[in-house]
Structure formats: C-alpha cells, structure tokens
Design a protein around this nucleic acid. Sequence first.
RNA 1: GCCACUUUAGCUCAGGAGGUAGAGCACCGCCGUGGUAAGGAGGAGGUCCUCAGUUCAAAUCUGGGAAGUGGCUCCA
Length: 644
Amino acid sequence: MSFSITLPDGSKKDFTDAVSISDLAHGIGTSLGKAALGAKVNGQIVALDYKLSKNAEVAIITDRDEEGLAILRDTVAFVLEAVAKKVYPEIHFGEHGTDDEGFYVDTDKENQIKINELPDLEKAVKKVIKAGEKIASCMMSKDELADIFNDDPYKSEMLKAEKGDQVQVYKLGDFIDFGFDALLPNTGKIKQFKLLSVAGAYWKGQSSNPMLQRISGTAFFKKADLDADIKRREEIKERDHRTIGRDLDLFFVDPKVGAGLPYWMPKGATIRRVVERYIIDKEVADGYQHVYTPVLMNVDAYKTSGHWAHYRDDMFPPMDMGDGEMLELRPMNCPSHIQIYKHHIRSYRELPIRIAELGMMHRYEKSGALSGLQRVREMTLNDGHTFVTLDQVQSEFSKILTLILDVYKDFDITDYYFRLSYRDPKNTKKYFANDEMWERSQSMLKKAMDDMGLDYVEAEGEAAFYGPKLDIQTKTALGADETMSTIQLDFMLPERFNLTYVGQDGEEHRPVMIHRGIVGTMERFIAYLIEIYKGAFPTWLAPVQVEVIPVNLDAHSDYAKKVRDELNKRGFRAEADLRNEKLGYKIRESQTQKVPYTLVLGDKELKDKGVNVRRYGTEEEVAKSFDEFISEIKQDVKSYSREE
RNA sequence: GCCACUUUAGCUCAGGAGGUAGAGCACCGCCGUGGUAAGGAGGAGGUCCUCAGUUCAAAUCUGGGAAGUGGCUCCA
C-alpha cells in the first residue's frame, strides 16, 4: 500500500502505512505538530487521531484557523454535556452546535436549568479541564448506539439522521455522544471559555415541537480574545438603539399606554421628519406621485387581496360598526394604492404609474417579538407601488434598485447584501397557486440582477405569498439580519382586484404590480440609523445641530441668543444653553448629547463678532467668523452622510 | 405565542430573615459668575408592575396576570 498526501502549498508526502493527522503534523514540523488541532481532509474536518490511508489533500488546522475555533467550541460543548450528565443524571440532550458567537447545547430535563445554576456548571467544567481528561474517539455501529440511546428520544432521532452504518462517537469517561466533526483529544487543551445564557429553543426549530433549554457559551484560545469578546458584547449593548434612544431622549415605549406603540419625543421626531422629507423629495424627483390614504379600510378589501386568509392572526381584530360594516386597521397599504389606481380608467400611455405614501399601518405582532423601534405594532412604511406593463418590469426594477442604492449612499449605508427571495417549492400551500407565474417572475428577477451585474444569494421560502422579491438585508447592532429595502413582483393582486389598462389595441390588459420599500418603516430605519451612527448623527440629521454656550450669562447671553436666532433663521437647528451652570458642565452635556457643533461665545467672540467652534468628537477649538461658520455647516448639511 | 430571567423615584440601580424604603444622576430654589467633559450645601419626588391568597400586619411569602430582556417560532 502506498499513497501520497498533498499539502496546501502543493508539496506531496508519500506514505506506505496509514498515518494519523497528529503524526503527519509532527512530521512536517515540531511546532506544527504541537499546534495541530485537527485537519481538513478533502474539505472534511477530522480529528487528530484520524488515520490517513489513501491519496488526499490535507490541511492541518491550528488555532489560527476559523475551523480551529469551531473544534475548540465543539469540545467545550461536549465537555459541558458530560459534566451536565453527571450533575443531572436524568438530563437528555438535543442538538448542539457552534457559530460565530460561540457554541450551544440544547438540554431537556424535568426541572429546567436556571440561570443561577450556570456558575456551578462552569466551575465543574473547569475542574474537568484542569484534570486534563482524555477524550477518546471511535466508530460504532448504529445498532449499538441505538441500544445505548434507546431511552433518549432526541438522540434516537438524531441517530436515524446520521448517514452510513458506522457513526463516529466521542467518549469522556462513561459519557458518549456523536454529531461532532472533530474534537480535541484532551480536555486540558481547552483554554478560555464562558457560559453566557440559558434560553428556550424548540426541538428541531419547530414551534410545534417541545421546547428545550439552550445553554449558550463561547470559547477562545487566548484570554485576550475572550476578554475582547466580552467587551464587544458590552459595546453592542451601548450601541443598541433602545439605550441610545433613552440617553438622547429620542423616543419611548410605555407598556402602560400600549406595548409596541412608540412615542416620538421632539428630538426623535426631528430626525424622522428630516428623513421623511428627504425620501418624499427623492421619490417625487424619481416620478412617484405621493398620496394620502386612510388607515381604516373595509375588511372585504383584505379578503379580496388574500391577506385576511393568510395573516388574519397578525391583524388587529376588525371593528364591527353595527350596521354590517366591518372596519379593519390596515396591516399594509397595497389595497389602498390599488384603489387609487382603480379610480380612473388607465391607459398604456400612463404606465408606469408610481404611487407612494408614508403609510401608517398596524400589525398585531406577538408580544415576545416586540423590541424597541425594531419590532412594533404601529409603523409607518415608506411604501410605493408601481403599475407597469409586462415589458416594463425589468426596466422599472432596475430603476427602483438604482434609487435604493443612491439613497444608501446618502445615508452611508454600506453593510448589506442582496437576497432573491423565492417561494418554498415544497410548501406551495402558503403561496399563491400558479406555478407558471412563479417560474416566470422568479426568473425575471434573477435576469434583472444578472443584467445589472450584482451579486446575490437565493433563498427559498422567503417570498411574499403573492410573489417573489429582492430583499436588501442589513444587520442590527445585535447582529440580527433584517430587511431594509424590498422590491416585490406581483401578478396576483392585479388579478384579484381586476386591474386593467387600455392598450394601444383598445383592449383591456392586466398590469403587473411592483411593491417596493426604499428605507422600510420609519421606526426600523431610524433604529438602524441610531445604531450605525451610534447616536452621533451626521449634521443633516442631528436633532440639535448647533449648541451655543455663553461663557458668562450676564455678559454673553444676548450675543448667544443672537447667534442662535441667526442660525435658526437660516434653517439650522440651534439651541442656546442659558442655564445657570458652569461652562465645563455645558460642554460635557453638548458632547454626551453628541451635538455636531458646539459654539462657545465669550469676550473674544463678542469683540470679533465671531464664534469659537468645537466639532463633535474632536478637542480642537477653532475661532471663526460667523459667515465662515455658516458656509462650513451649510456644506456639511448638503453632503448628507456621504464620505467625501 | 413558547422557555428562562427581570419589574423598587423621571433614569441607572441598592435594600428588604414580614412591621409601608435608599444612593447616584436628572428636577426645584439657594450660594457660587465660570474659557472647553460633572462647583457646593439643601429640597421635593415612591400604588416597591398588577390582581388575588396566607397573616394582626405583605414591597418582602404563595398563586394568577401584564410588561420588559435574552433566545426560539413568526415577520405580508
């Protein structure tokens, strides 16, 4: 027997006998041998004791590789299981796994694990780590394992899902488990770990299944990395829009007056107003006609649209008006805009017709889903519907996408990706039944993206029930994926509402409807802006753009008021801090409130008719004439958030 | 909606072996008149989330409910 191993640098090593990953690594170099944690063999992750016996491409994994971290985290998860089994003999385990954040183990036992039991579990794991116990691996037959796990419903089910007849298992003392790619050979190799939380998670991720307890934690090779990660988690909290929203007095949600119903304080309202005016101007310039339509609508419209059948549980219950009329708080604006379209007979000459509105709508989101401004029960959507002929779909699509990307530049939004959201072919029940329509519209979307040369991911099961869509996905401070913008093709509603236009041939034709949102809902968008700017809004959006501070109240208040008034007269948002406090106190507050410009006015400025400017985030003081300052801030506002 | 945790002053939080509570910041007036991140001493402020139960007595113990947080599920 002879075979050769190809290493990442292209070099080859020949062997006549089977060789373990560990020996291979030692053979390459002593330090690599020590650092080796596992290997990738033809792309598959294996443990150190894996025996190579045929030609293969092998890359040794060390703590510098992402896969190394996954091996470490899997090992901690495994040791945690072994320890938990000792502490709670009746415990069962569900799924376990690792991700960017760390690792998790799903558990099930009579009495749920409480958060205050975590420190004891952590201590017990540390003890095992210190003892440096051996983690053994071997192959076992499914039958043998089925006997071992016969009283464990979760493991039995997972075992069935394993491929092949032989399953790789790991052992620590009496404890045995499977489903790991590779583990470290000894508990002593675990360096830094921390248990973070216990939370609920449905077995196999389905809400109809029992709920298990998920213990989450994280692990690193170096203490500095763990410390940095803990610090990162704290910083994320500081960037959370709810924290900043409170500190800067932007908005609040008071459960006593209504969960999920936000109140916009003057400063938050200012930001929102600037965004609303901006987006309306932008859309009007792009050919949209802005309208106002009522938040109440006869429930029949939602029965026609199909929303009632699909989403009734997430809608507010209809109001019975007593005379047979049932009014519904609208959960979306499409049927309203359809009414606008239907109000006249439409000619092909008019198309595309673009209707837009900042439409307020209500959705009865489940209480557990509500979160600050990110998930609410009343929201205002930057909504728009364009009605086009079949021939116009692609050009309209790219026109909308161009607008979106232009808007992103103005807000300096750079961290996003495109997702083509298709229906789930296995679950067609949820979707409008018309295979040909789905095939056609999905390929139209794909072609439009390809023609524009844009990268995207394709996701089945993410479509709207009436059609496929392009979603533009961003991330919140806490790392959750969320849809910022969307373009949706809809062949269904025009059918349901019998929308028509008169063509050149004098006959009636069916238009295609495109639903689109540029910045999504005001609530979610402003939550997003708070997080990307960390509360330090660029000047054009800042609720207070200029804070004017007199050095001495008696001597300089009049001048401060005059400067403030002059700024306000020119359309800037300026405030004068005339409270009876020390200068340092006011400067501090101006900084913690993240005001872009702080002007200090004293004897010098009064004499020169000038201002002393401190830009947020700097410690420089710059003396300027009033006119110089005006042209600086004017330029600043005009540039939006663009980095130029 | 499900699992865990939490809910005390406007905010952030202490405390409470059952006898109706405290700090810092914020707020109000007083003294201080200051040049770039907190001047000083004081005052006011509470349905201890809510509804029941146990008790002479409940903010504290028990149970139901609501909301918040972290997850899970969902998100037109």
